[in-house]
Amino acid sequence: MEGARQASLRPPIGPGRGVAAVRAGLARINLYGLVTLLALVGLWQLLVDTGVVTAQYIVAPTEIVSAAGDLLSTGELQEATVHTLSAVLIGWAIAMVAGVLLGCLFGLFRAARTYGMSTVDLLRSLPTIALVPPAVLVFGFSLRMEVAVIVYATLWPILINTAGGIAQVPRELHDAARTLRLSRSRTAASVIVPAALPAIIVGARLGMAVAVILAVVAEMVGTPEGLGYGMVFAQQAIQPADMFACIITIGLLGVVLNAAVVAVSRLLPAVAAAQAERERR
């Protein structure tokens, strides 16, 4: 009966939730997908080894691994990764705070939308990458420049998804809050913003991807540090294996950061509930 069906459902909240989230995350790793990936890497190796691909600067995976090993032993790769990671995390965190606050402002207050939305639409349609050169002029070749560029680019997806998530909250929830005579501020805090959380997390994930891209771009043309700089440096020194080692590290960084946002967001009851509801269907 009812009870039996529910007994098998793990509540999304409660003790052991962190451990359960990690286990669920590991269970979600798709082994078959990994097989395809490894097969492609194997094919690449084979094409280079057999001389089918002879382009001078296309190096075999084994060479990249050994280059990465060298870069790790000198500590260069770690140093570059730490730099890029800190720029991404600092910029993303600032953009999260500002984007969620502004998104709530736009989502909750019609006047804010009326007066502010055109400005937002204009600003976010500027190509952010084109803002790197002026940012270098203003902030110099520094971490501050990098963070400023990341914040600017990352702000928009977070803001737009937050405001959009609030706009999508069903009429029924608004009506339920009103008929129960909740104050406006309590309605926002207890009903509307939690209901918009899954959308806010989508914004946070998009923002994280954008932050990684912008960090790399800023390092390629501005800050003389980090993985983006390492990549350009290796290219100019004609060290293709080093260059690919940087590129692959950047890719891995993106994957890990996205997974981290997903894992942490599952600790939020509203996100866990939305997930559980979806899985039940």
């Binding site: 069903p170 029924e172 929830l173 009506d175 339920a176 008929t179 939690p194 509203a270 866990a272 509930a273």
Partner: peptide, 16 residues
């Protein structure tokens, strides 16, 4: 005065 809505699933807070 309290209103009760037809669409119960949308009127409840799924995270609570």
């Amino acid at each position: 005065v309290v209103m009760v809505f037809q669409d119960y699933s949308r009127s409840l807070l799924p995270w609570r």
